[in-house]
Design a protein around this nucleic acid. Structure first.
Length: 108
DNA sequence: CGCTTGACACCGT
DNA sequence: AACGGTGCCAAGC
């Protein structure tokens, strides 16, 4: 068969998954980790080493409970929060408000 | 040197 | 109090 859907590196798969997230939507590390079948820590690192916008909107990735988690950026984690709000996502005390409503249903 | 993988600690139930 | 899940780091090849 074809390989139109040939599986590339997990990392590449992760980026492909991440870029399919629409504007104003968010996802979680653990969810991605389960889908890609890797460690949730890896998810964050892949983002950290690829904070090149708009290639990878890692700012749309938050922890599983709605926390921002961490963020390696020349601006600071707070910048991520502001960026999130700019997308249309509300945050409170560094936590996403109703983030579950903005949760993007990733296709498995 | 850059990229990838894993275990431990913390929080919630 | 213990277990399960999450987490943007550090070490190894």
């Amino acid at each position: 068969m074809t390989d139109a859907g040939k599986i590339k590196d997990k990392k590449q798969r992760f980026y492909d998954l991440l870029v399919q997230i629409p504007h104003g939507k968010v996802t979680t590390y653990g969810r991605l980790a389960k889908i890609i079948h890797t460690s949730p820590r890896v998810i964050g690192y892949w983002c950290a080493t690829n904070s090149h916008f708009p290639r990878v909107p890692c700012h749309r990735v938050v922890s599983s409970d709605g926390s921002i988690g961490g963020y390696t950026h020349p601006a600071g984690i707070k910048k991520k929060i502001e960026l999130l709000e700019k997308e249309g996502i509300a945050t409170k005390k560094g936590k996403i408000v109703g983030f579950q409503s903005n949760f993007f249903k990733i296709k498995k």
